[in-house]
Amino acid sequence: MTKNEPEAIVGGKITNLSLRRWLHSLPGVDKVGLESRAAGLGTRSIKTTSKTWALDAAIKMMDLTTLEGMDTPERVRSLCLKALTPDPTDPDCPRPAAICVYGDMVSVAKQILGKSGIYVAAVATAFPSGRASVAVKLQDTKDAVKAGADEIDMVIDRGAFLSGNYLEVYKQIQAVKNACTRADGSKAHLKVILETGELQTYDNIRRASYLAMLAGGDFIKTSTGKVTVNATIPINLLMLQAVRDWYDQTGVLIGVKPAGGIRTAKDAIKYLVVVKEVAGERWLSPDLFRFGASSLLNDVLMQRQKLKTGNYSGPDYVTVD
């Protein structure tokens, strides 16, 4: 048994009891300290060359998202075209890391993006509520992978988590991870959505982060964007602490993806400051940090135009999606 096996980390056979013992032995979160640190990092002023870098980095780390019931193939196509050419006036403008859509839109997105290097991420497992039988969730995942999804964003079963049934949550993540396997044996990247807005406490968020990492998630993601409280900076900070400590303990690199409610370039830069200060520069890469966002891109593009031309830009100068 190597030190990275779940049994070694939890300290015994994986049962609901051992998981509970392990998760509840994690140090409690200092709410006041966490929020004041997040607020302190948020006040930092990022200017000139650092700002230029940060704006480009924010685009490169973006999962450009459309997750609406009213999505149509045309809407997804136009979003993909926007990802290919975010700013038609500037050929040097970087591209987002991925497009994030519902499973049935994967093939549409794949058709446009092809081998452009922009990944297609699909939400699966009865997103956003996660309320479906395991068989349905797995089939949902398999369909998306089969259609060509490079990344799967799954939701955890919050009901099971909150009622203390950690083993169920753990098993479901593992099962979805297996369902991410493609015909050729390679695997789609798995992002685990904790839906922090429904987890009630910071302690629960820390526990859910560890549980998702233990079960084999490649990324931990804050939210679906479908509840009232989505990504916040303190939650981002807390999850970055978790991946940093996980790396120290196991040597495994896990990514973080805040999603929902990040609309302005200013907000995005605050998140990047937290990434650098909490997890370190290594995480300032699309492989380990992503923004889940839809309207953020336009604001970042307007800020880029401002830096380039010296004039404040406006919504007339970016594409409307």
Binding site: N311, Y312, P315, D316, Y317
Partner: peptide, 8 residues
Amino acid sequence: WLASHQDV
């Protein structure tokens, strides 16, 4: 700044 602002 206001005279050159693109959204004015």
